[in-house]
Design a protein around this nucleic acid. Structure first.
Length: 719
DNA sequence: GGACTCTTGGTTTTT
DNA sequence: CCAAGAGTCC
């Protein structure tokens, strides 16, 4: 068994797997088998007689955790080790030790949308305008403070500018609001656990004793809280194995500190450092190109990536006229990959921002190419799903006002804004819990008899549901759907079938019931709250995968296309323009490129729609002066329908076209045999099969291939 | 009190 | 161009 575990590993991998006590840093390049090292290490420790209960592996996403658990299980060692993310670990421990932390055990977890609602409410309480103080921006500040363990009253107002002073005030109100709701946001989860480890030595010792071997993956992306948590877990034994790659640190913007990994050896002077530099994933061509991109960076530990994989196709760069042609080009490229023998699941397309997925999606649909967009949280943003979850949250945590506000009149049951406000006003005036107010409506004089009856009915319904909470999550959910009236409301809605989505949610609950050791509504909700985009990736689906560069981390595909390599997109335009920010963008591209096993294609468009209007773009600075990149400035021209005119183009007399093109300038008056007089707006794609955009007098604006548009040039002297 | 239209404003990236 | 919030009409 032990032999099996280490046979087939390279020497450095074996070293990392079998190292027993003391700190160890695994500096792992992309595709170097890092995941394998961790899974084998977990299994190895178990074969060395360590109880699985004493092993903790912390991953970056739930998906990574799930995969890792599966792989460890497949190594046929006893189960029971803890493999999860920082956030779910924190949530679990804070529930388990709620009394230590001074928390109710049934707290809600507020994600994105809930945080914004809570901040919006806080703004109202302070009588501030959301326009001057955008909730999202305030929340970013708050997040930064929490990451530094700074509470609202620990901020020195003398050091804050006006905006931050207001933000600091809102921070306090926001925290009060969360507290009244028995809710924690993402940052609270980490901060509370970190503080607990710092301030509760007894509990810290207990946890050090429980988790005697700790592994932290993606250490380069830990923020200060996560760093402190990792330290707190290992103060007594220093059995920490951190793995990561400074070149793949891409979350600086949300507090990740690349310094944590760079300073590991200083924090743990006895640390053994293992370097995994052999790449088992990519061809030399891909690796070489990626290295050309990353080696410009200054804040890094130099690595020599190498591979023994044999030479493959050169990497390719494609230029397109605009984003729809780029999308068309993508579809054609995928078709070509299929002809070359790849499956759809072998192919991935990456982009910098989510907004770019729309055009791509459309092109794939038209070309009948199956695809999956990796946006795990999208499903949970749907109105009907959020409504359902709000009901469940209210069942689990009666103090959850955000949930209550959402569904007290959803579906409409005659409880309007006025009534709701009166109820909440009464609750804040008397300082009582909102749910207590609802249960003793007679105490609220401002509510009239009609409203009272309606609210009473609602409260009774919730109480009846609460009685059912002992049964499976699936059953609670089904009952909620019926009794709340949502099912009835959805049945009438034939437009976008919300009932089907709720069915899907119910299925997920059923799956949870069967998989969880001890199904619990609050635990189910916690899982949902901590779900991430990357979690949606299904490697079994026979579909092309579309995702952001960030979501691509940790994955690999035989063929990869990265689109939108334009200045302003990669690197993304942003205020400041700090040197380190640009380096992070470079790392992001590096991460994307190194996902590719055999084929890597990069593309950019010279025009792109932004806010509904077309803007000119130029190639990314990151791609200038690269060697070994084959440039191909073909636009999409055949294979699929390009909405108008695309027949009969012959490859000959190319030069004539070019000459003709040169004679045309922007603003040139032309005559078209069919459309009449018009003016040239744009000429594109000079190198091959040029196109012109002509604004005709009829009002129509057409994009025409110069080759067969038969435009007649008209000089003003003709008039 | 509730549903609908209109305007506004906003774009990285996410646990 | 799209989503969310706010005003407006019934």
């Amino acid at each position: 068994m032990q032999q099996e575990l280490i046979s087939g590993l390279t020497e450095p991998q074996r070293q990392a797997v079998t190292h027993m006590d003391g700190p160890i840093l695994v500096l792992a390049g992309p595709g170097s088998g890092k995941t394998r090292v961790i899974t084998h290490r977990v299994a190895w420790l178990i074969t060395q007689g360590i109880s699985p209960r004493n092993i903790l592996a912390i991953t970056f996403t739930n998906k990574a955790a799930r995969e890792m658990r599966d792989r460890v299980h497949s190594l046929r060692v006893p189960r029971g080790s803890t493999i999860c993310t920082f956030h779910s670990l924190a949530a679990r421990l804070l529930r388990e030790f709620a009394d230590h932390a001074g928390l109710p055990a049934d707290f809600s977890i507020y994600g994105d949308a809930d945080q914004r609602t809570a901040m919006r409410e806080s703004l109202k309480l302070c009588e501030l305008d959301a326009k001057n103080f955008p909730p999202a921006k305030i929340l970013t500040r708050v997040s930064g403070w929490k990451n530094k363990f700074l509470g609202p009253d620990q901020l020195d107002s003398r050091e804050l500018d006006y905006f931050d002073k207001v933000a600091a005030r809102l921070y306090g109100v926001y925290q009060e609001y969360l507290k009244a709701n028995s809710a924690l946001d993402f940052d609270d989860l980490l901060m509370r656990l970190a503080l607990l480890l710092r301030d509760d030595p007894e509990l810290r010792d207990h946890l050090n004793d429980r988790f005697r071997y700790v592994m932290v993956d993606e250490y380069q992306d830990t923020n200060h809280c996560q760093y402190q948590i990792a330290r707190g877990f290992t103060v007594n034994h220093s059995n920490i194995c951190a793995t990561g790659d400074p070149d793949q640190s891409i979350y600086g913007w949300r507090g990740a500190d690349i310094g944590n990994i760079l300073a590991f050896e200083r924090d743990y002077p006895q640390a053994v450092v293992v370097r995994l530099e052999e790449n088992f994933r990519s061809t030399p061509e891909v690796l070489d190109l990626a290295d050309q991109v990353i080696r410009i960076n200054r804040q890094r530990k130099e690595k020599r990536l190498f591979t023994s994989k044999s030479s493959g196709d050169p990497c390719e760069l494609r230029e397109y006229y605009d984003e729809s042609e780029e999308a068309l080009g993508m579809a054609q490229w995928i078709a070509q990959m299929r002809k070359d023998g790849l499956q759809y699941r072998d192919i991935a397309v990456f982009y910098r921002i989510n907004a770019m997925s729309r055009v791509l999606e459309e092109a794939l649909r038209r070309a009948h190419i199956p695809y999956q967009i990796i946006r795990g949280t999208e499903f949970f943003k749907r109105r009907e799903i959020r409504d359902m979850l709000a009901y469940l949250r209210l069942l689990a945590n009666p103090s959850d006002q955000v949930a209550l506000r959402r569904i007290i009149n959803q579906p409409a049951r005659g409880i309007g804004a006025t009534t709701v406000n009166r109820l909440f006003d009464h609750s804040s005036n008397t300082g009582g819990d909102i749910w207590q107010v609802l249960q003793s409506l007679d105490q609220v004089p401002a509510i009239n008899a009609g409203a009272r009856a309606k609210v009473k009915k609602f409260v009774d319904m919730i109480m009846k549901l609460r009685e059912q909470m002992g049964s499976s999550v699936e059953r609670v959910m089904k009952l909620t759907y019926e009794w709340s009236g949502l099912a009835k409301a959805h049945a009438a809605d034939e437009s976008d079938d919300p009932a089907a989505n709720v069915d899907e949610l119910i299925n997920s609950a059923a799956l949870y019931d069967t998989e969880a050791e001890e199904p619990l509504l609050s635990d189910y909700l916690q899982q949902i709250a901590l779900i991430s985009d990357a979690d949606a990736y299904n490697d079994q689906a026979g579909a092309v995968s579309l995702m952001t560069l960030h979501a691509a981390k940790g994955l690999e595909f035989p063929a990869v296309l990265i689109v939108g390599l334009e200045d302003g997109l990669i690197p993304h335009r942003r205020y400041g323009g700090d040197e380190s920010d640009v380096e992070e963008e470079r790392r992001l591209l590096f991460v994307g490129m190194t996902r590719a096993e055999d084929r890597l294609v990069l593309s950019y468009a010279r025009n792109r729609m932004v806010h509904g209007s077309s803007q000119a773009g130029i190639i990314s600075v990151f791609l200038r002066d690269l060697t070994g990149l084959v440039c191909n400035t073909d636009t999409a021209d055949d294979g699929f329908d390009d909405d108008d005119d695309d027949d009969g183009y012959s490859q000959s007399d190319h030069d004539d076209v070019l000459a003709e093109c040169a004679a045309l300038a922007r603003g040139q008056l032309v005559r078209h045999p069919e459309f009449g007089l018009g003016r040239v707006q744009r000429i594109s794609n000079l190198s091959d099969n040029p196109k012109v955009v002509v604004q005709f007098n009829t009002g129509a604006c057409k994009t025409l291939y110069l080759k067969y548009a038969h435009l007649e040039r008209i000089d003003s002297t003709d008039f």
